[in-house]
Amino acid sequence: MTKQVKKIICIVCPRGCEITVELEDGKIKSIKGYSCPLGKQYAEKEVVNPERILMSIVKCVGGDLPVVSVKTAKPIPLSRMIEASKALADIAVEAPVKIGDKIVENLLGLGIDVIATRPCHKQKEE
């Protein structure tokens, strides 16, 4: 039987609770230090398979800003973040873009879409 104690900092909200997870043979024995259900869920996930929401920008052609901000609709594995960010570097969309518009479907085959988080309006003619 192998016991393991993992200390993690919760990233769900800015409070940054320190959560202690006790593991026995890789199974969670106890979770302490969280102050909301979301924090507990986060800790359960974090000790097994850490995930993050990826935020980035993609080019926006003909918009009032040259880029539109995007995020993954759900968290993706932390280990794939840089690879996923690289994949977004080649994407360009056309204005107008609304918040929530789907920018990429099924990013890296993860089954997760990338959506716009900032509107990009069509650039008006001078």
Binding site: I8, I9, C10, I11, V12, C13, P14, R15, G16, E18, P50, R52, L78, M81
Partner: peptide, 10 residues
């Protein structure tokens, strides 16, 4: 602290 974790340590 959350930013130390998710921005630096990650």
């Amino acid at each position: 602290m959350r930013n130390v974790q998710q921005c630096l340590k990650d």
